[in-house]
Design a protein around this nucleic acid. Structure first.
Lengths: 146, 146
DNA sequence: GTTGAAATAGATTCTTC
DNA sequence: GAAGAATCTATTTCAAC
């Protein structure tokens, strides 16, 4: 990453708040022309700073109201790559974080109800050499800019 | 949420993979007309299923290479709303999850380096009635569809 | 639910400074 | 680096089915 200035930061902030924000909307905000804004956003994509765009979904509205983090501990011989692989095949898993120390992984899951959560946790325990789990039930959440 | 069918699910899946996917791109995929796709996406926005759109950023490219989860425990008298409020004023905090049981909150932070992480954790400890913290350093991560 | 057409707006490219 | 104009593409609305 060579130069990266306040204008770039401003553009990223605007795109974080609205990923479909147009060049014409951003241009006056940063005091540049539409063409100049396009060149900057293109450069952010080319350099990989912008990985892509996505939609923000309210999962409770879809009936997937329960969110939890599952801490997983594995036997010492389990390679990290296998931990991730055994987790992301489970459709309820939203994200997997491999961790230094204890636990070995933190898995973010989203489920319809408690019974469903129980099934998902059982599924995670079964695959691989899991030695223990601890489930953190999410009561509420706040995410930056969402 | 009244009716919500496979076409809607397909549209959400496509928008998750590319939030800037156009109606004209989605229409042939789901076998509907452009106008019909627009009506469905508009309905998903109106009903709140679609909360918004955002950009996916590679923070390592911006020099914020370290990611961690901090488990926070509070005194019994601390209201949940205050926990969230004291956390999201810290700019390094990406997300706050309030938890049922122990710990009371799980905080996702993103920092430049270890020294910076130390400062952020110290900052989180200072505000509110924090009785203990445990930090999970993220070695690697996988997120659905990202 | 569909099609097609028309109007608007945004993206993109090119030439200019 | 930047602006402005021309072109193309997509969105949006509408009428009719």
């Amino acid at each position: 990453m060579p130069e990266f200035d306040d204008v770039d930061r401003q553009l990223l902030r605007m795109l974080r708040e609205d990923g479909r924000c147009t060049f014409s909307e951003m241009a006056p905000e940063v005091g540049l022309s539409v063409a100049a804004v396009k060149r900057r956003v293109d450069r952010l994509k080319d350099t990989g700073v912008i990985k892509g765009f996505t939609v923000q979904i309210d999962h409770t509205k879809l009936g997937w109201g329960i969110e939890a983090f599952v801490e997983l501990s594995y036997t010492g011989t389990t390679p990290v790559g296998e931990i991730v692989r055994t987790c992301y095949t489970v459709p309820e898993v939203q994200a997997v974080f491999t961790i230094a120390g204890d636990p070995d992984a933190l898995v973010h899951v989203r489920v319809r109800d408690i019974e469903h959560l129980q099934q998902v946790i059982d599924g995670l325990r079964r695959v691989g050499q899991v030695t223990g789990t601890k489930t953190l039930m999410v009561l509420g959440s706040w995410t930056r800019t969402a």
